[in-house]
Simulated assay, not measured.
Amino acid sequence: MTNEVIDLGNGLEIHFCLDAADTGAQFTLFKVVIHPNAKVPAAHYHDNFDETLYGLKGTLSLTVDDQVLELHAGDHYFIKRGRIHSFTNQSDETVEILAYANPGVFTSNYFKDILGVLKAGGPPDMARMKQIMLQHGLVPVANH
Rank of each mutant, 00 (worst) to 15 (best):
P103K: 03
I14W: 10
F30D: 00
T107V: 06
A20D: 10
L62R: 02
V5L: 14
D7L: 13
A101H: 02
L69P: 09
L69D: 06
H44I: 05
D47E: 14
D65N: 15
E4L: 07
F87N: 00
N3F: 07
V64R: 10
A99C: 14
T2G: 02
I6D: 04
F27A: 00
H76A: 08
L71K: 08
I79V: 14
K31R: 15
A25G: 04
T23A: 09
Q26P: 03
G11V: 03
D7W: 14
L18F: 12
F27V: 03
T23E: 11
P41T: 05
V68P: 05
V64Q: 11
T88V: 09
D47A: 06
K57P: 07
D7T: 09
P36R: 03
N3A: 10
L60T: 12
G74L: 03
I97F: 06
V68I: 09
V95H: 10
T28C: 07
K80Y: 04
I97C: 09
A25F: 15
H46M: 04
D50I: 01
I14T: 06
L60K: 06
G9W: 12
Y100E: 00
D65P: 06
V5W: 06
D7P: 12
A20I: 05
S86F: 11
N102M: 06
L12M: 14
L53T: 01
I84M: 06
R83W: 02
A21S: 15
G58I: 05
K80Q: 11
Q67R: 13
E96F: 08
G55R: 02
S86W: 12
L56N: 02
D75N: 12
I79K: 02
P103T: 04
D22H: 08
S91L: 08
Q90N: 14
L98D: 03
K39L: 15
T52Q: 10
G82V: 10
E93W: 03
N37E: 13
N37S: 15
P103N: 07
N3I: 00
T59W: 01
P41W: 02
I79A: 03
I6N: 11
K39I: 13
L71H: 04
L60I: 07
Q67I: 13
R81S: 05
E96T: 13
L56V: 09
F16L: 07
H85M: 06
I84F: 01
V40H: 13
T63G: 02
D50Y: 09
K57H: 11
I79F: 06
E93Q: 14
N89G: 12
Q67Y: 05
N102C: 09
I79C: 02
E96H: 10
H76F: 08
I6H: 12
A73Q: 06
G55I: 01
D65T: 12
E70N: 08
D47H: 15
A25N: 07
C17R: 09
E13K: 15
